[in-house]
Computed example of a mutant assay.
Amino acid sequence: MNDYLKNGLFLAAGVAIGALGAVALGKGKFSIRPAMADLLSHGMDLKEKTATVLERAKENLDDLMAEAKHAKESREGKSVAEGETA
């Protein structure tokens, strides 16, 4: 199963679940407000965890870029110094 088909199936399932939820809310036969509040709170927790991981990854990439810049400047400095002594 290729990725396009799999992603398409996930999209179709999400649309179907959303449509069923909209119908259930429209009929108003049962209250899903507590379940929705719980689901949203879990979503907010996931968002915070994801933001933490992404911030840590950004810091690591910034450190790596600084090290690479320093290594490049060191190489360029050696090249200039070698050219002057020649």
Results as ranks from 00 to 15, higher is better:
K47L: 14
A19W: 08
L5S: 13
G14W: 05
F30M: 02
G43E: 05
K29L: 14
A16F: 12
L39D: 09
N60P: 06
V53C: 06
I17P: 04
R33S: 12
E67H: 10
I17C: 07
S41D: 03
M65R: 00
K49E: 07
K58R: 02
L9P: 02
N2L: 07
I32M: 07
A68F: 05
L20Q: 06
E73F: 06
G8F: 11
K49M: 05
A13W: 10
H42D: 06
A86F: 10
R56T: 04
A19R: 03
V80W: 13
E82A: 13
R33V: 15
L20A: 00
E59C: 01
G43V: 08
G43H: 03
A86Q: 09
F10Q: 04
G83L: 09
T50A: 05
S79V: 15
I32K: 06
L46S: 06
N60L: 04
K69V: 11
S41R: 01
R33C: 04
E48C: 03
L11Y: 03
M36N: 13
P34D: 08
A57R: 04
L25W: 10
V23N: 00
D3Q: 14
D3I: 15
L46P: 02
M44A: 09
E76C: 08
G28L: 11
G26C: 06
E59Q: 07
G28V: 07
A35M: 14
E48G: 01
A35I: 10
G77C: 02
A16P: 03
H42W: 15
G26N: 07
S79F: 12
L9Q: 00
G8D: 09
E67M: 13
R75N: 12
G8L: 11
D38R: 05
L9S: 00
L64A: 09
L54Y: 11
L11T: 03
A12V: 15
R75I: 14
L46Y: 10
A81C: 08
A57C: 04
V15Y: 01
S74W: 13
L39M: 11
E73N: 14
K6T: 12
H70C: 08
L5I: 15
L64P: 03
